[in-house]
Amino acid sequence: MNVSIARLELSFLSISLVYTYFIRNTTSTQAIVVPSIAFLDNLEQWYLVLFLEKLLPETRKFLPAVKADGFFQIS
């Protein structure tokens, strides 16, 4: 990886973390939509970040069912 690209990604990540921390800790926002760090060159890739501690305690009101879709494993 090119050093300048790595610095750009680190800078982007740092800025994103600062904004997310600010939004999470100073507002009543329950979720934000953020661009994918893995696909910075593809602006069609986005993630929904939920702040679980801010969601309603009764999750069935906004999430009526959960179905298994696969698994995730880090080796």
Rank of each mutant, 00 (worst) to 15 (best):
I37V: 07
Y19E: 05
I23K: 08
T59C: 02
T20P: 01
S36I: 13
A38N: 12
L63I: 01
V34Y: 07
T29L: 00
L50Y: 10
T26W: 03
L48C: 08
L55R: 00
F39V: 07
W46F: 12
R60Y: 04
T59A: 05
V18H: 02
L52I: 06
L56C: 00
E44C: 04
N42C: 14
E58Y: 03
W46R: 07
R60G: 05
D41N: 12
S36C: 14
V49E: 12
S14G: 09
S14L: 04
T26M: 03
E58G: 03
V49I: 09
A31F: 12
K54H: 13
L50Q: 04
L55E: 03
T26I: 01
L56D: 08
N42A: 15
Y47G: 05
K61E: 06
E53K: 06
L17S: 05
P57H: 02
L13E: 09
E53S: 13
L63P: 00
D41S: 09
L50D: 03
E58L: 03
S36N: 14
E58Q: 09
R24S: 08
A65D: 14
F22P: 00
I37H: 15
N25V: 00
Q30L: 00
L48N: 05
W46M: 08
I37A: 15
D41L: 08
A38I: 05
K67G: 07
F39Q: 04
F62C: 01
L55T: 01
P57E: 02
S36P: 12
E53P: 05
L48W: 05
L40C: 05
L48H: 05
E44A: 07
I15E: 10
F22Y: 10
I15V: 09
N42M: 14
L56H: 11
R24M: 12
L40R: 13
F62R: 06
T27D: 04
P64D: 14
L17V: 11
S14Y: 12
A65T: 10
V49F: 11
P57Y: 02
